[in-house]
């Protein structure tokens, strides 16, 4: 299969993720969209790795996965904490510190 198709998929995933980050208001959904963006990057890396015929891209994809996992740990902890304090996970309610 032509590797370019994977790039189309990757671009689509990244766009969905970026649009979600901009549009959605629930912190968990926003966070999931960020993960979608990271995974779109992974797919792009693996595809470019295949096109170039070297392994660098596949290796950085593994590192991105680890980074994403660590982000999940910290991110869910923060969202959980803010939910406990405020009983809401909407980013619009985080308005305590407006200028």
């Amino acid at each position: 299969m032509n590797p370019v198709n994977y790039l189309y998929l990757s671009a689509l995933l990244f766009t969905i993720g970026a649009a979600g980050v901009l549009v959605r208001r629930n912190a968990i959904i926003v966070f999931m969209c960020v993960e979608l963006m990271l995974n779109a990057c992974n797919l792009a890396f693996v595809t470019f790795s295949r096109i170039h015929g070297n392994l660098d891209g596949q290796i950085i994809a593994f590192f991105t996965m680890v980074v994403a996992a660590a982000e999940v740990v910290v991110g869910l902890a923060i969202i959980l904490m803010i939910f406990r304090v405020r009983h809401s996970a909407s980013v619009d309610d985080a308005n305590l510190m407006k200028l």
Partner: peptide, 8 residues
């Protein structure tokens, strides 16, 4: 609350 929002 401020700390949590800042972190988020």
């Amino acid at each position: 609350r401020g700390s949590a929002e800042a972190a988020l």
